[in-house]
């Protein structure tokens, strides 16, 4: 049974003629990790807002079709109930941080306080999440004294601590250093393994290939391609439409006409695939030579 179900979803922001999402059909299974890619303006953030209930409860405009999470229609639910099921990590952490709290610890505890969780449990869960997201050492700092990447970790922690059934993330690592990005992908993967359903808008294809179960490529508000990460991310049609592709894929494409990549071999997305492919070719060449 899919936990997230979108059927023929079309959405217009107020006073716009062109739909931001058009005829979206999407089902996500419990515990699945789905990555959403697409150029800026393709509808990634709008899709995130739709799943998170901000559309139609906060952004007005016109929503058509079925948006259902865990058997409940978004139109039949209050935003305050919905956010307990679906957590959204914003693209810009400034939009997430409450401004009402002096320390990272309090900021991360804010949501639990609001839902009346007992104090001892709040402390336990916040400590656990700070550890998991790698910001335990920042617990006493002001959220506003942190760098962009650190704030993104705080934003992630403040949602994870709520233990939503569905975790929606809008480019959650855009301001993070590269190794931090990998760590955060690891944490999110671990959440999915534990049964949390994940939908993540992201540009970083190398990590998507390693961590996601499925990739949705959005283009002008529609689902353009969908499938296993490797199939989608090496599809030539992505290049035409200006999607970001892995530099390993680009390099192998350039290598093909020079006879430096074996024709029968799938194109690489990750470092390991590229190393394996180029090593195989080198060994083959040396044997011949």
């Amino acid at each position: 049974m899919p936990i997230v179900k979108l059927q023929q979803v079309t959405y217009h922001y107020p006073f716009t003629e062109k739909p931001a999402l058009q005829d979206i059909n999407l089902e996500v299974e419990e515990g699945e990790f789905v990555a959403v890619i697409g150029p800026n303006g393709a509808g990634k953030s709008t899709l995130c807002y739709t799943l998170a209930g901000f559309i139609p409860h906060f952004y007005k405009g016109e929503l058509k079709g079925i948006v259902e999470v865990d058997g409940v229609l978004v139109q039949d639910s209050d935003l305050s109930d919905w956010v307990l099921k679906v957590g959204l990590v914003f693209q810009n952490p400034f939009n997430q941080i409450s401004g009402a709290k002096y320390t990272v610890f309090e900021e991360v505890a804010f949501g639990l306080e609001n839902s009346g969780v007992p104090r001892s449990e709040i402390i336990r869960r916040v400590e656990e999440v700070l550890q998991m997201t790698g910001i335990a050492d920042l617990a006493d700092r002001s959220p506003y004294s942190l760098s962009g990447g650190q704030q993104q970790r705080v934003a992630l922690a403040s949602i994870l601590v709520m233990q939503p059934k569905v975790l929606v993330l809008d480019e959650p690592t855009s301001q993070m250093d590269p190794i931090g990005t990998r760590e955060v992908f690891g944490v999110i993967r671990q959440m999915a393994e534990q049964g949390m359903t994940v939908v993540m808008a992201e540009h970083k294809v190398e990590w998507i290939a390693q961590f996601a179960d499925r990739v949705i490529a959005l283009w002008e508000g529609k689902i353009y391609l969908e499938g296993k990460p490797h199939e989608v991310l090496t599809d030539e049609r992505l290049v035409e439409k200006g999607f970001g592709v892995s530099r390993y894929t680009t390099t192998a494409r350039l290598a093909l006409p020079r006879g430096l990549w074996q024709k029968e071999r799938p194109l690489p997305v990750t470092l390991e695939e590229a190393v394996a492919g180029f090593s195989a070719l080198r060994n083959a060449r040396r044997k011949q030579g």
Binding site: D177, P178, I179, G180, E206, S246, R247, Y248, T251, L271, A274, V275, F278, S279, R282
Partner: peptide
């Protein structure tokens, strides 16, 4: 917390 660029890493590995 920085990795070398993707292409640089590939070159180093090979």
């Amino acid at each position: 917390y920085v990795d070398p660029p993707q292409i640089t890493r590939l070159g180093l590995r090979l």
